[in-house]
Design a protein around this nucleic acid. Structure first.
Length: 476
RNA sequence: GGCCCGAUGGCAGAGUGGUGAUGCAGCGGACUGCAAAUCCGCGUACGUCGGUUCAAUUCCGGCUCGGGCCUCCA
């Protein structure tokens, strides 16, 4: 089995993955701030790191995947003040929506999904440690992290403090000793959520929550930290600084992985730009849209930017149609431990181990599809086999089993194939009757009648496929 | 303005110091009563200018263009 290798943002290099504890791999990914529906860009890290988690679970005895819910944030407060809806209602509703949307993308839940508000005490502990260690100071009701107390500040995101100041045009709060200092704790008035603390009633700054939750569930040192590339600075830089300074001698995450942005019309999709499409908008295209979007994401390498278009979504759907067509054929089931099936599946997944090269893995899935089609429908697999460099001669059902197994690690092709192709209206019996009538007409060589029936079904959005083993149908 | 990343055929998108994957679209063929599905085959690409090398799309540098971060952001 090929070893795993990932591009580490912290070193800007591809590195062989060696977990701190090979018996227990630990992964942390930044989760959503629950103040509004998730958009397409929010979905990308969830899908990408879902694939990573599936891969890790396949390779290691135990994996703990933590993804937080940020349910205390000034955007949430602002939303509540605008709409009058209580904060708890906004966060509960948005969290439920998020879960539903991610399930529609076939993302598995993380092992732990802590909420920021459930970890305030941990954050306070961290802040106290930072003050005690000389890395933070209280000023004007706030507690700030002192950037110049940490020599490596800026190293993760690859920028010096001078560089950061050079371009910064933000106004600097008067209570900051250094313009780069960031807030760990800030005071809350009576109209805002707040918790008692040594510095008065207040609420946490943005970055401290992830440090607290990673510490609680994964310890001071763990294997992989993931998130969108736009979080690299300042969020991850600050998170790292806080955690390392709170626990001298620790290193926090060994590997940092960042996914590229989802673009629309060549520009980053974001709520502040207003050019976003929510998952709800996307899923309204049909029951196929969730998996089609997942495939669309996995057809591009996770670190590259990806431009979303509806055409590409339809293209991905068409590909899934082809895969599911094969899986509806009622193929023989190979033995559980069939070595050829295992070999083919392993081959297809090989690229995923190389910094999540899902586009190449998807291409290999297509080769397995061709092998199965050749085995069951007929034709020649010479082109595929020469490309693959093997002399596989799979019997009917073997390549399909390998396909399902490999696709499962990508979170694809796990729907019921018949539902995928024929789900929707409850008119299956009528369609089957029409197909039987057409077959009778064909048997009588009454082509006009047979074509009339087919045209009628086509008008209803039903596509017929005549195969060696009979006629099947699907919805267009 | 500072820092970082990218530029592959009509579109999307892997990969490699030496015959340039794959998908969609297009074209031709097999199969089919005709289609659809399936299989086979074909065409057009490595932004630009230099450098290193026997050889560069692949390594190095300049340029152009695009994107990201520097402010909330997946």
């Amino acid at each position: 089995m090929t070893e795993l290798a990932f591009h580490n943002s912290a070193t800007r290099q591809r590195e062989i993955f060696a977990p701190i504890d090979p018996q227990h791999v630990r992964l942390y990914v930044c989760g959503p701030t629950v103040y509004d529906l998730a958009h397409l860009g929010n979905a990308r890290p969830v899908v990408v790191f879902d694939v990573l988690a599936r891969l890790l679970r396949r390779r290691f005895p135990r994996v703990t995947y933590v993804r937080n819910i940020t349910d205390v944030d000034d955007k949430i407060n602002a939303r509540s003040q605008e709409s009058g809806e209580p904060i708890a209602a906004i966060t509960a509703r948005t969290t439920a929506d998020f879960h539903a949307d991610m399930a529609a993308l076939n993302c598995l839940p993380p092992d732990e999904e802590p909420r920021a508000t459930g970890n305030i005490d941990r954050m306070i502990t961290l802040i106290e440690r930072l003050i005690a260690n000389g890395h933070a100071y209280a000023a004007d009701g706030h507690v700030l992290f002192a950037v110049n107390s940490y020599a490596d500040y800026g190293r993760l995101s690859g920028r010096s403090t001078e560089e950061m100041l050079a371009g910064a045009r933000i106004e600097v709060a008067p209570y900051k000793r250094d313009p780069g200092d960031f807030v760990l704790w800030k005071p809350s008035g009576d109209d805002l959520p707040g918790w008692d603390s040594p510095w008065g009633r207040g609420r946490p700054g943005w970055h401290i929550e992830c440090s607290a939750m990673a510490w609680r569930y994964l310890g001071t040192d763990f294997d992989i930290h993931g998130g969108g590339h736009d979080l690299l600075f300042p969020h991850h830089e600050n998170e790292l600084a806080q955690s390392v300074c709170a626990f001298p001698g620790s290193r926090f995450a060994r590997t940092w992985m960042h996914n590229g942005m989802v673009l629309v019309n060549g520009e980053k999709m974001s709520k502040s730009l207003g050019n976003f499409l929510t998952l709800r908008d996307l899923l309204a295209n049909g029951p196929w849209a969730g998996e089609a979007f997942r495939l669309l994401l996995l057809k591009t390498h996770y670190r590259s930017a990806i431009d979303y278009t509806l055409d590409r979504l339809h293209e991905a759907r068409g590909e899934l149609d082809d895969f599911y067509a094969l899986l509806t054929r009622g193929l023989p089931e190979p033995e559980e431990d069939d070595p050829l099936v295992a070999e083919m599946a392993e081959w297809a997944l090989e690229p995923v181990a190389d910094d999540l090269n899902t586009p190449l893995a998807v291409a290999r899935l297509r080769d397995l599809r061709t092998l199965e089609n050749v085995a069951t429908v007929g034709g020649s697999a010479t082109a595929v086999l020469s490309r693959v460099g093997r002399n596989w001669q799979p019997a009917s059902g073997q390549a399909a089993a390998a396909l399902r197994q490999a696709a499962g690690v990508l979170g694809l092709l796990s729907a019921d194939p018949r539902t995928w192709r024929q789900g929707g209206a409850d008119d299956g019996a009528a369609i089957e009757a029409a197909i039987a009538a057409r077959l009778a007409a064909r048997a009588a060589r009454n082509w006009a009648e047979a074509d009339r029936i087919r045209a009628e079904l086509t008008a209803q959005g039903i596509v017929l496929e005549d195969g060696p083993s009979g006629t099947t149908w699907r919805r267009a």
